[in-house]
Design a protein around this nucleic acid. Sequence first.
DNA 1: ATGGACCTTCCAGTACAGGGGAAGGTCAAG
DNA 2: CTTGACCTTCCCCTGTACTGGAAGGTCCAT
Lengths: 129, 129
Amino acid sequence: MRIGELAEASGTTTKTLRFYEEQGLLPPTERTMSGYRDYTTEAVSRIDFIHRGQAAGLTLAQIKQILDIRDRGQAPCGHVRDLLDARLADIEKQISDLVALRDNVSALRDAAADPEPDTCATADVCRYL
Amino acid sequence: MRIGELAEASGTTTKTLRFYEEQGLLPPTERTMSGYRDYTTEAVSRIDFIHRGQAAGLTLAQIKQILDIRDRGQAPCGHVRDLLDARLADIEKQISDLVALRDNVSALRDAAADPEPDTCATADVCRYL
DNA sequence: ATGGACCTTCCAGTACAGGGGAAGGTCAAG
DNA sequence: CTTGACCTTCCCCTGTACTGGAAGGTCCAT
């Protein structure tokens, strides 16, 4: 399987696949006599896994950690649990930060809904912010 | 007022102030005979405004838009309202995306809380993801 | 006159996940 | 035999908001 076929089969681009290889997420493949990369179908499930990891909000570096553990022949379950835990805490914090921000911005926006401001101190640039 | 004093007065760094000038958020200042930047106290409120804008989640580019309008002698109120509206919609979307992500990750994490997996298909890398 | 604290410019890099495009090699069809 | 689609490596660019550091000039006190 050439790189273009793999890209199509896994819903990504050749650029991305070469980038993944460079980052160590995909192992270097066999090459044909003319130097073309030659993939097995195993590569497809590996890329699918990468996509599932991304969908869970993991970074490529974290996904690589999991793949490295698996490539050493171990089960990455424990590490995956830890990563998911950390990710979950992260997401919770992002959510609560965003909710606080929304409340602020919402209040600002409501104030700005006023009819035209009679007092608009130039020095402060904008009395609504 | 030299750049270091302004940085202290406005709670930022000299690096950042030069960066803001370069980006057009701060107008080029007067210079002393030796080439030092010489700020008026007006600069402090301008930087405060930038900080308020950032606290509202606006990008420097958006803050610059507001400052540019103000610098042309107009009242930026309308534009500020639009920006806040857009920002609010953005935040709402980010929140709902994150909530959906949290639910996914949370479900994955719960599945991963299982005792050790008896079936761990190597081909899939990790049955928890 | 010398040290230290300040200032100047410019160049480069950070994190993240790729994308753009050049210059050149290869393969199958017409 | 040539055309077009594919492949290779290479290096730079994207956006965001800065940060670090080098090389050199200035100001003030000792």
